[in-house]
Amino acid sequence: MAYRITTECNGCTACVRLCPTGAIAGERKVLHVINPSLCIECGACGRVCPQEAVQDAFGIACRRIPKLSLWPKPVVDAKICVSCRICIEGCPASCLAGRMDGSGKHEIAFLAEPKACISCGFCEADCPVEAIRLVVPQQPAVEVKPA
């Protein structure tokens, strides 16, 4: 099962650049194609596509999340994490790592490279002890000027 790109694609190459397995082929302004044998269904292409031209494995159109800052990111509960590295080694963007959390000699998983995260949710799905939740990062408060 793999994702598919429809003819709505305008060839912007945003998905080509983001795909962690290099499964998407396509030049600028040419219809992009996903290689099903390489697609891991992470959904990054669907979240980034300005045309919403990506369908998931069930044929459902993916919703774009326009701002990258609104993409949900993993938050690790250090009290539950057992340092097993399943999330770190399973991350297609290699954006997780381990660090000492101060309470012991064991390294706890954390999001080391937030900008590289593609919000695939594999870490949340794979964590055997459910220590990871995907959360939309809190936006800084914006001052609203009176009209």
Binding site: R85, I86, G104, K105, H106, E107, P128
Partner: peptide, 17 residues
């Protein structure tokens, strides 16, 4: 002499260091 314990992939125990 151990300054950090490490875990192999998939190990909740962590006997390495």
């Amino acid at each position: 002499r151990e300054f950090v314990k490490y875990h192999c992939y998939g190990c909740p125990l962590g006997c390495g260091g």
